[in-house]
């Protein structure tokens, strides 16, 4: 069984929001709901400055607080590591939103249920990359099987010394190069 993961290189990311809109289209989200949030940081004093943009979405944690707090089992982890929400079971109590350390969850107002990045499971099942990866104009994202030692994502993790954004807080399947 594969264990899916993603990597994002903020050195490449130009903060263009293409991934946000591609994701909204793929998942048919209204303009105000997005699975990807953007954080930016400016450092230094003119003219010696630097700037970083960090897009954050569901980190697909193995030790997922959203799953452990969910009172209805609506939030669950698939065998391939993808963390999902079963919208039929979700009561919209937002406990998972409070529990998610990465603020990765959104309220889907049309149904009152909770939404988040699902690693484009329907595309991945057809052997394709997630929409945000495909569309990334800076090739900043890599998707793949973390259990396959030869996968491209594992190579990039090793080469670039990619890290989880919050250490091993939640044993996430998402890596950052920063």
């Amino acid at each position: 069984m594969a264990r899916y993961g993603m990597l994002l290189d903020t050195g490449k990311c130009v903060g263009c929001y293409a991934c946000r809109v591609a994701c909204q289209m793929q998942n048919e989200l209204p303009p105000g709901e997005s699975y990807i949030k953007f954080y930016e940081n400016e450092t230094g004093v003119f003219p010696n400055v630097n700037h970083e943009i960090v897009p954050v979405q569901c980190q697909h944690c193995e030790d997922a607080p959203c799953v452990s707090v969910c009172p209805t089992t609506a939030s669950y982890i698939r065998e391939d590591g993808i963390v999902m929400v079963d919208h039929f079971k979700c009561i919209g109590c937002k406990y998972c939103m409070e529990a998610c350390p990465y603020d990765a969850r959104e309220i889907h107002h049309a149904t009152g249920t909770i939404d988040k990045c699902v690693f484009c499971q329907s595309l991945v099942e057809q052997g394709e990359d997630p929409a945000c990866v495909t569309t990334c104009i800076a090739d900043a994202r890599v998707f793949g099987d973390l259990d396959d030692p030869n996968s491209h994502i594992n190579q990039v993790i090793a080469e670039q010394n990619a890290q989880h954004i919050a250490g091993d807080l939640t044993k996430s399947n998402f890596y950052y190069v920063r």
């Binding site: 263009c16 929001y17 946000r20 809109v21 591609a22 289209m25 495909t134 569309t135 990334c136 104009i137």
Partner: peptide, 13 residues
């Protein structure tokens, strides 16, 4: 080359 920018996705609508 496989990608599209945000405007492309948005403007299609």
């Amino acid at each position: 080359l496989g990608t599209l920018c945000a405007r492309g996705h948005g403007f299609a609508t």
